[in-house]
Design a protein around this nucleic acid. Structure first.
Length: 280
DNA sequence: CTGCGGTCCTGAAGGC
DNA sequence: TGCCTTCAGGACCGCA
């Protein structure tokens, strides 16, 4: 679920929460979601929290990284005071959006009794402990190296539908289904168009629209959709869902007042929302 | 190279 | 009330 603005929002918040904290113990409740040996984390200090695309990485003082991918339903939640003994006494939990809950898969306990919870209903997400960030190799959309020239070259060399290309993490990192739909609407481009078929004006429009859309997502601290999968590390919701222009608005009239209707089509198994009239 | 469908999982929502 | 289908913000793998 979380895309760049959601992951970046979480990164900024937990960075303030956990940098300089020392790990006491890592409690793994769903074994397959933690790759690596958690025992070597004892007494390690957190020095930074970084991000590449949708992958977050907690950097430790021995130059190892805990890379984290939240996939569709992952959450990171921070509790200032959560002694290790409390977890078992609080099961079973009924709430899914409080910490911890029945979807808690991994808990990182710190020396000062605070804790970081990794919740994930669908169990698609993971944590990996390695010596580097286990993220995408392509340039991140917020990176200064994500230039117009770079973007244009990627677009012009692909025959894929433009929506699929925007979400391709090997081409550019960070964009998922929501922001791809919204950016294409802003630039009035049909999501099914072949990337190669876009002219330079359209590509420039799309480039600017991506920046606008991502910035807006960050401004509202990401989008907490109907299933509430994404929440902030303190349990609160993001606000961007109130500002969706086309995403999840099938059947509604176009926000451009063009008299068109928003329709939904499937592309590579995912829903694309677009205005039939003004997206060409 | 492309596109497609199945897969990892769980739960909510909607149709009948 | 209950049963069945569809859907979900990601990404990988195998196949044609």
């Amino acid at each position: 679920m979380p895309e760049l603005p959601e992951v970046e929002t979480i990164r900024q918040i937990i960075s303030k929460d956990i940098v300089n904290k020392v790990i006491d113990k890592v409690e793994i409740l769903e074994k397959k979601q933690f790759i690596g040996n958690p025992k070597i984390l004892k007494d390690k200090k957190i020095v930074d929290v970084q991000r590449k695309g949708k992958v977050m990485a907690i950097k430790l003082d021995n130059n190892l990284f805990i890379s984290i991918h939240l996939k569709l339903t992952g959450q990171l939640l921070f509790s200032k005071n959560f002694p290790q003994s409390e977890f078992k006494t609080q099961i079973p939990f009924t709430q899914t959006n409080k910490m911890p809950s029945k979807t808690t898969r991994i808990i990182i306990h710190f020396k000062d009794n605070s804790a970081l919870f990794f919740n994930d209903m669908r169990k698609f997400g993971w944590m990996k402990l390695t010596d580097k960030i286990e993220g995408p190799k392509a340039i991140d959309v917020l990176d200064k190296d994500f230039t117009f020239d770079y973007f244009e070259a990627k677009i012009k060399s692909s025959g894929k539908p433009i929506k699929i290309l925007l979400m391709d993490q090997d081409k550019m990192a960070g964009i998922g289904n929501i922001y791809a739909n919204e950016a294409l609407f802003l630039s009035r481009i049909d999501p099914r168009r072949k990337s190669k078929s876009l002219n330079s004006v359209e590509i420039k429009n799309l480039y600017d629209s991506i920046k606008k859309t991502i910035d807006k997502g960050l401004k509202y601290q990401g989008s907490s959709g109907r299933d509430e999968a994404y929440i902030l590390p303190n349990g609160e919701r993001g606000g961007y869902q109130k500002h969706f222009l086309v995403y999840q608005r099938e059947g509604e009239k176009c926000p451009n007042n063009c008299k068109g209707k928003i329709e939904r089509v499937k592309q590579a198994g995912r829903s694309s929302f677009y205005c039939v009239t003004c997206q060409k």
